[in-house]
């Protein structure tokens, strides 16, 4: 019983992390068809925001508010300065964002050094759940990711910007012929995706090692999540994360990590073979 509860909560933590990292990617990939290999670095930027804030004596919550703003700013800068010239050239975008990712990694390492950054979580201790004692911060992470899922859903479903995004995903030409400035939608959506990744960075940071290369760990798996789950919607991200995170969480318990990750990859390939548009196509 106790073990079972811990296992489920561990899986939920992993799923939450995947959801947080993948939401921004799903918006950027789904909307603009942009394969952004620098997405992991947006997560890193969020984590470093936390490290820097705490190093300067600020607290966790300040960083949680600052990170999305800094992420959005970076996103906007990158979209305006680079991505928007490359929409017609998908391969160039892959190369350019890959290069950008390396520049960001090395830049962070130059400024902050190669040693892991110190970060601390805002709450410590454990909570008893059905006889299992579980770290309170992880429960907070799960709670936050549920909140962010709901907020993203509401944003896409009920706001003017959300409707514009959904229209552009379905038919870009028609959306522009109706008077929607699709370039502006692109820029804002890119900023939003980066902001979400930066929030994810803050939330994940206390559970991981904060180094300049940390983003790479999340990049491949978040593409998995988006492709398996279905491109372009919040539902797809949740489904993909649940599958990838759930499988990995349960198998990690019985198998070596590398084996379970390989099996998840096999499962993803099988699913995409039979459902090429993902579990929950938008």
């Amino acid at each position: 019983m106790e073990q079972g509860v811990t296992l489920i909560l561990n899986s939920l933590t992993l799923i939450s992390i995947l959801v947080l990292v993948s939401l921004g990617l799903a918006i950027i990939f789904g909307l603009m068809n942009v394969i952004n290999l620098a997405h992991g670095e947006f997560v890193t930027i969020g984590a470093y925001t936390l490290a820097l804030t705490q190093a300067m004596g600020g607290n966790y919550w300040v960083a949680l508010v600052m990170a999305p703003l800094i992420g959005a700013m970076f996103g906007l800068l990158i979209e305006k300065g680079m991505i928007r010239y490359l929409y017609e050239k998908p391969t160039s975008i892959i190369l350019a964002t890959w290069g950008l990712g390396m520049v960001l990694q090395q830049g962070l390492q130059l400024v902050f050094g190669a040693a892991p950054q110190r970060v601390s979580s805002p709450i410590s201790g454990a909570v008893d759940i059905l006889g299992a004692s579980y770290p309170a911060y992880r429960l907070m992470l799960i709670g936050f990711s549920i909140l962010i899922i709901l907020a993203c859903y509401a944003l896409l479903r009920f706001t003017r910007f959300g409707l514009d995004i959904r229209a552009v995903i379905q038919d870009r030409s028609m959306a522009s012929a109706l008077g929607i400035d699709t370039e502006r939608v692109n820029a804002r959506a890119f900023a939003l995706g980066a902001a979400l990744a930066a929030i994810a960075g803050v939330l994940i940071a206390p559970l991981t090692v904060v180094i300049a290369q940390m983003g790479i760990n999340y990049l491949a798996r978040s593409f998995f999540v988006v492709i398996v789950g279905g491109i372009g919607g919040v539902g797809g991200v949740v489904a993909g994360s649940t599958l990838v995170g759930g499988l990995e969480g349960f198998m990690n318990y019985h198998l070596p990590v590398t084996v379970s990750q390989a099996l998840v990859l096999v499962a993803a390939i099988v699913i995409v073979r039979f459902r090429p548009r993902g579990l929950v196509p938008a």
Binding site: D164, R166, A167, Q170, D171
Partner: peptide
């Protein structure tokens, strides 16, 4: 937009 509702399609017309 086939996946949007009639109301949403009409709202996009007002853009």
């Amino acid at each position: 937009f086939p996946k949007l509702t009639v109301a949403e399609n009409l709202e996009l017309g007002t853009r």
